[in-house]
Design a protein around this nucleic acid. Structure first.
Length: 877
RNA sequence: GGGCGCGUAGCUCAGUGGGAGAGCGCUCGCUUCACACGCGAGAGGUCGCAGGUUCGAAACCCGCCGCGCCCACCA
């Protein structure tokens, strides 16, 4: 409860009655309840975190915030890493920087599509015409087949759903106290992001850095879209190794190969051995026949073949895995494609060119058995047929192997030939590695992940996706007089028209009626990989091409914060785009966060069902407490989810409330200088802590800054505040003046040191006695504090504080062991110690005898520190 | 198979050349004039294992073991 009659703690003056003070004074019973709501409203009202675009570049600190994927809800892992960034932002702001800290929402892409399909029970069908009056079926109502809707209708549903998610996300971030400038928010599906993505793409196309190619592509058979190497992950899957006989053609020797994919025998184009493998020398150069189909395939050699595996012979099919693609390319083999985009075996023209066979009837009959079936069904049937024909040799051997999956997919990736857009990556590999070395990594070892990834790239970045909710490619194709698509010379949109949707917009010089007609045009049907947009977040956030004055002030950015799992995607691609478009690194520093692990040290993920949602944590422990837990996670280190740490954080916040109340409520007037040794000593130590916290923050190590501050703060409360109580309440203003001064200095520093971590409680205690927001206050100055405490070290005063605390600890121990209260009087304390320490003790003995209720303090010179405590006899009740 | 990280008290983790630490948990005590959302005290460790460098190693070097992550040509 604010008390307007009490003296103003900052000045000691009585508040002016006529002018209601902005400073409410120290409340009777300070509390954490409701601080989030109260202060976030004030910060919003005052624009506390508003970016000031008038600032000069040197005073700007710009942050390339990760736009969280808008699909469902944020989890505690987001809270973790976004808190790390926020502490850094708040530190820089207090250092006087104008912090550019926008938020983005990554709403475009597959996760949203999937969510919309499930939520509304619809499916996108681009052949359906747009229905302007379409209303979706009520959520959960559709039991049966999903309703086909047009692409524009589908996109509308996506926008509708993401918008409500984004409101919920913003609400959570505000409750957590992220100091973002909410007037700068962007989305990856918005017009700005679309324009920048399309403009960048057209630039790359004009410079030959983007190209279109019909080639074997990583393909997800469920989503029916191409995916990129960076989106693959390995999953262990049980399988079996089959040994299969390929009969020698024209009476030659048989070849025994081993494969896990017998369903691809019809797609086999060669059998390979290692060039040095003597076992197969006579076979090399001959032809063998595929079992069941009788296709002639050559036996060739290639150094990648591992002679140790199986028989040393391997079949090459188009395409079973990425190695097949290498062999196919390097040995210039033909394509025999059996797998369709839907993951079923497709019709094959046996007997026509490329599908010649020594036994046409048998080939057709065999293929009849698997045509139209799924991969698993075809595999099963093939094994049965091979077994019947005696071409399956021995027993299949069960194996567990790593299979590549699209990270969001449910069935293994296949490789299917299709026309896709690519951005050149491989030829820039060395330059990109060099960019990675220019970047300052926190922690430094994270750079290895970047370099490993860059070195391991085996193809250019496939950026086209056969999906709907994304940024379309701004191109059309001409149709010839027969209506065939002419891919080689796309019509590109003019820059002023961007963003365009080629499926509804019409290219210059054409009429809408010419769409799909002979001599007319068609739209490129694809959208961009979501990373193709989010790799441009620095440009999007900075409004490149739209507000170049702003862009020049914030780009290249100062900081990219993100988690380590997306170094190969988000970080790598952003470096690539900036390198290709601007020829610079997109940021100077990268701060890499770890993951939140569940208590069993497993990664939290939706599929494991161990995800913790954060809102109830914020409600139960308070935002500051949750932030405290997060800020304890070292940069880059995976950290266990631990509500216990949140309780500790809450304790710390309460302690700051109470210590501030003790120090500031009815504080006597301060003197001009610190004239007591212990006051100078504590400020000298505080100066060291500020120095350490500052250098930790400069090194992006928020966790160390917090740890050092916290450690000293608890010590300060337990020892210094106890020691000075006598002088604090002394009615003689000459006695209390120095301690009053020290309390102001120290509390002011503590409140500011904690502000990046505990923004709500820090603002609360700051508001009791200071003008303005603590988050706009200058970061404590170690040199200034050291100057206030000048001479403390030289005069042995720091030692005085140390020895005084040592003795107080011994006195407390004696009382505790005697099971007496801490205020129990002590008749006599004998302190044995070195002369230097006894001399120092003398400087603090006044506070010591008061705090310990000591009647007689007796120093005795000795080599070893020993304290003898003689308690006064217990009084009878 | 390669790379990176980690291994310190029951738990979570600091500590990078000289004394083995913190918080939580546990035990005991204390209505103390900021705080019982508190205060004080205590028990608890072969610093993964083995070797080396050094006057001295939890720390530096070599090897091994275990855990995690990333990557790989995964047939």
């Amino acid at each position: 409860m604010p008390d307007s009659k009490q003296p103003d703690p900052a000045t000691g003056d009585a508040p002016r009655e006529s002018e209601p003070s902005a400073r409410p004074g120290v409340p009777e019973r300070p509390s954490l309840e409701g601080l989030e709501e109260r202060w976030s409203a004030v910060w919003e009202r005052d624009g506390a975190y508003r970016f000031d675009r008038a600032a000069v570049r040197e005073r700007i600190f710009s942050i390339d915030t990760p736009p969280p994927t808008v699909s469902g809800s944020l989890h505690v892992g987001h809270v973790f890493s976004y808190t790390h960034t926020d502490t850094l932002a708040r530190y820089r702001r207090m250092r006087g920087m104008d912090v550019f800290y926008p938020m983005g929402w990554d709403d475009n892409g597959l996760p949203t599509e999937r969510r919309v399909q499930n939520h509304f029970g619809v499916r996108c069908d681009p052949s359906v015409p747009y229905d302007p009056d379409f209303t979706p079926p009520p959520a959960g109502a559709s039991e049966g087949e999903p309703v086909p809707v047009s692409r524009p209708n589908f996109v509308e549903l996506c926008l509708q759903l993401t918008e409500s998610d984004e409101r919920a996300f913003e609400e959570l971030w505000r409750t957590l106290g992220l100091s973002v400038d909410w007037s700068m928010t962007y989305t990856t599906i918005g017009a700005l992001a679309q324009r920048i993505s399309q403009a960048s793409f057209l630039g790359l196309l004009a410079r030959g850095e983007a190209y279109q190619l019909e080639a074997p592509t990583l393909w997800d058979i469920d989503f029916r879209t191409a995916v990129a190497q960076a989106e693959l992950e390995d999953r262990e899957r049980p399988g079996a190794m089959y040994r299969v006989r390929f009969a020698g053609a024209s009476g030659g020797a048989d070849a025994l190969i081993e494969t896990t994919r017998p369903e691809l025998i019809a797609a086999t184009v060669a059998v390979l051995a290692h060039p040095d493998d003597a076992r197969h020398h006579e076979l090399v150069g001959a032809d063998v026949l595929t079992p069941l189909f009788g296709t002639r395939v050559p036996v060739l050699t290639h150094p990648l073949v591992d002679p140790e595996k199986g028989t040393g012979l391997v079949m090459v099919s188009t395409f079973g895995d990425v190695t097949d693609v290498t062999w196919w390319r390097e040995l210039d083999l033909p394509v025999r494609s059996v797998l369709g985009p839907d993951g079923r075996l497709q019709e094959v023209p046996w007997g026509s060119p490329g599908w010649e066979t020594d036994d046409l009837e048998r080939a057709r009959a065999s293929y009849e058995q698997i045509s139209g079936r799924t991969i698993n069904q075809a595999r099963k049937r093939m094994i049965e047929m091979l077994e019947q024909d005696g071409d399956l040799v021995g027993e299949p051997e069960p194996v567990t192997r790593a299979v590549k999956f699209f990270e969001k997919g449910e069935r293994p990736i296949e490789i299917i030939t299709s026309r896709q857009w690519f951005i050149r990556t491989v030829e820039h590999r060395e330059a990109l590695i060099e960019r990675g070395r220019e970047l300052h990594w926190h922690p430094p070892y994270m750079r290895a992940r970047y370099e490993d990834w860059a070195r391991g790239l085996n193809g250019d970045w496939c950026v086209s996706r056969q999906r709907f909710f994304g940024v379309p490619f701004p191109v059309w194709y001409r149709l010839d007089e027969r209506g065939s698509v002419l891919y080689d010379d796309p019509i590109v949109a003019r820059g002023e028209r961007l963003p365009v949707d080629p499926s509804t917009d019409v290219p210059d010089g054409y009429e809408p009626a010419q769409r799909g007609q002979p001599n007319g045009f068609v739209a490129d049907p694809d959208v961009m990989d979501t990373w193709a947009t989010s790799s441009l977040t620095p440009q999007i956030a900075g409004h490149a091409g739209e507000d170049d004055e702003l862009y020049r002030k914030v780009f290249p950015m100062d900081l990219r914060p993100q988690a380590h799992d997306i170094i190969r995607t988000w970080l790598f691609y952003t470096v690539l785009r900036s390198h290709l478009d601007e020829g610079v690194l997109p940021w100077r520093d990268a701060a890499i966060s770890g993951w939140v692990l569940d208590p069993d040290r497993k990664k939290m993920s939706k599929s494991k069902g161990n995800v913790v949602t954060p809102m109830h944590l914020l409600e139960e422990y308070g935002a500051d407490a949750v932030r405290y837990w997060a800020a304890n996670g070292r940069p880059g280190a995976d950290t266990a989810f631990d509500p216990q740490q949140m309780k500790v954080g809450r304790r710390l916040a309460v302690k700051l409330l109470n210590a501030s109340k003790f120090a500031l409520a009815d504080l006597p007037p301060e003197g001009p200088a610190l004239n007591h040794p212990l006051d100078r000593a504590v400020i000298a130590r505080l100066s060291g802590v500020v120095r350490e916290a500052t250098s930790s923050f400069e090194d992006y190590d928020y966790a160390r800054a917090l740890e050092r501050t916290e450690e000293f703060f608890w010590w300060y409360c337990d020892f210094y505040l106890e020691l000075i109580k006598g002088r604090r309440y002394d009615p003689d203003p000459d006695v209390s003046a120095s301690v009053s001064h020290a309390l102001r200095l120290s509390l002011s520093a503590f409140q500011r040191l904690f502000a990046p971590f505990l923004p709500f409680v820090s603002e609360e205690v700051w508001s009791w006695w200071q003008e303005g927001s603590v988050h706009r206050a200058p970061w404590p100055d170690a040199d200034e504090l050291a100057a206030s405490a000048a001479g403390a070290h030289r005069n042995g005063e720091e030692m005085a504080l140390e020895v005084t605390a040592d003795v107080l600890r011994e006195v407390r121990k004696a009382k505790s062991q005697a099971r007496r209260p801490m205020r129990a009087p002590v008749r006599r304390v004998v302190v044995r110690d070195t002369a230097a320490r006894l001399q120092a003790l003398d400087l603090g003995s006044g506070d010591l005898v008061a705090a310990g209720a000591i009647e007689l303090l007796e120093p005795v010179e000795d080599d070893e520190f020993v304290v003898e405590v003689e308690l006064a006899p217990e009084q009878e009740p």
